[in-house]
Design a protein around this nucleic acid. Sequence first.
RNA 1: GCGCCGGUAGCUCAGUUGGAUAGAGUACUUGACUACGAAUCAAGGGGUCGGGGGUUCGAAUCCUCCCCGGCGCACCA
Length: 587
Amino acid sequence: MSTDIFNKFDNFLHDLCKKLINNKIIKNDIKLQNIKFEIPKDENNGDLSTNALLVLSNVSSLSFKEFSEYLINELNTIEEVDSVELAGPGFINLYLKNTIWYSCIENINNEGKTFGFENVGNNQNINVEYVSANPTGPLHIGHCRGAVIGDTIANLCNKMGFNVSKEYYVNDAGGQINELIKSVLHRYKLLSGTVENSNDADIEYKGEYLQPVTEYIYNQYGTALLDMNQIEYSSILRDCTIDFILKIIKEDLKKINIEHDVFFSEMSLIKNNELVDCLDTLRSKDLLYYGVLPKPKKIIDVEYDEREQELFKSMNYGDDVDRPVTKNDGSHTYFASDIAYHFNKYNRGFSKMVNIWGADHAGYLKRVKGSLHAITDGKADLTIVLCQLVKLFRDGKPVTMSKRANKFITINEVVDEVGCDALRFMMLFRKNDAPLDFDFSKVTEKSRDNPVFYVQYAYARIFSVSRKLEEFNLNIKFNYEDLKNSNYTLLNDIQEIKLIKKLSYFPKILKLTLQTYEPHRIAYYLYELSSEFHSLWNKGNDNENLRFIISGNKDLTKSRLSLLFAISNVLKSGLDIIGVNAPKEMN
RNA sequence: GCGCCGGUAGCUCAGUUGGAUAGAGUACUUGACUACGAAUCAAGGGGUCGGGGGUUCGAAUCCUCCCCGGCGCACCA
């Protein structure tokens, strides 16, 4: 079942093209995708507009005039079409009968939560990996944008018929973890009294969040770790600390409505020999070799260890240079385990993958895509969504963060101050490849300038009508059973029709968002829909006949309420995907 | 030096993946509450879409060359 009423028109057009090709009226070297209906920006240009004449008249054996007449006649045969006109530069514009909009309300309310979500995934597996911050401390605001974008994409995929795994890749094997262990060990020694002063100049992680886990370890083991060899105590410190920090991270994520299905350990790839096997595979494909990398241009007068190392031929895949898989201490690079991780995803049945990365990792893109292509013989499809950084402001002034001084703003702090709804919505209220300014003072404002509030207010207003309804003794309830099959033809104000049209675009927005992986489109759509609703509301202020509840007129009230019910359905669906609450009352 | 991403109204930003006279918010000016929540709405002015060239029926969008800003560029992640 398709909930997008516009599909029908595109299909009609494409069938028509095929017919014309078969009859040799047009040449067959055209791309059907380019011939389409669009919703004109200017409503004076109809409800739908097609470029078919513009695109096809050049490859047609008919004259422009003959061809236009033919197309117009054909389009006039569509049941829902009221009139067809040839416009200025060669567009053909359709004006649709109002019945199509009325059936749209009925569809929305009948389908409820499923309206707009076409099954494009067909149960195909998709792996969405996001956040994946190093387990060395709590999440800070910089992680937040990718987290929300990834989560929204995952939600959408799920609703559009994909079988989604939300994943977090845990880098529990690299050098940063060793630094983390050193930091905890230092605290442990202080606690057990074996170190007196806290000369911690060479300690990388100085955050107080490490104190509880240190105390936990001390309570558990006492001073026993001091008698163990390094391998033994490192292992204990590592396991306890990572467990502990992951617990903090999971709690932080839960506060912004995020729960991953899988936390995947980098270490497991090493323990299971998957990493080694992957490198072997690449060697067998002749994609690894020993070579010396040229000195990077950026390095001037700094010591550069020009040495031979094992490299992956990422230049074969468009990268600037080939990339090392082993470090100078002989251990593997992060890149090497990343190859194994992505191959592991593929082997778990995910030939479709999406990764959400910060823009600072953009340089990493080609080698990862290249290596995945190499090791799966091009059978895996990886999309990488890059998101730009978030700049924090308070009252228009930038808030400084410094990792060195251990002064970073955590997600926890932001949620406590502005709430999950505002945070999530604002993270999506910018396209992901543009930098985002996040102003604490603005997102708590209760005005049109704050889109979160504006959309939620629209939803709450609808339910204020449903509460008001009880005072009128019209014997109607605000639910589908009572509102279905209303006399929709009573909805004939321009603004009412405009709103229904906007509702009918929802399926298109969802599809486009899925194709582009650009979830900001949903946030903007909800904002626009809310705006149309507020506009209709105020029309009722000026003209009592346009209010939603009309005393003594049950039929009209029912039809108006069914429109409100449809709006509330779509607002709710949209807010659900982006993970923001839909409150029935504001406070 | 190379690569990636941006440059759209005074300011903050959208722009249906090449469509018609480029749109919102904000700010400024002016109007609408005996109320279904005015926390809202209506109206007005405001533009060389960074600049040049190209592709075509048609470009903010695609190609190319410059200018400006952000991020990245061995062994970290």
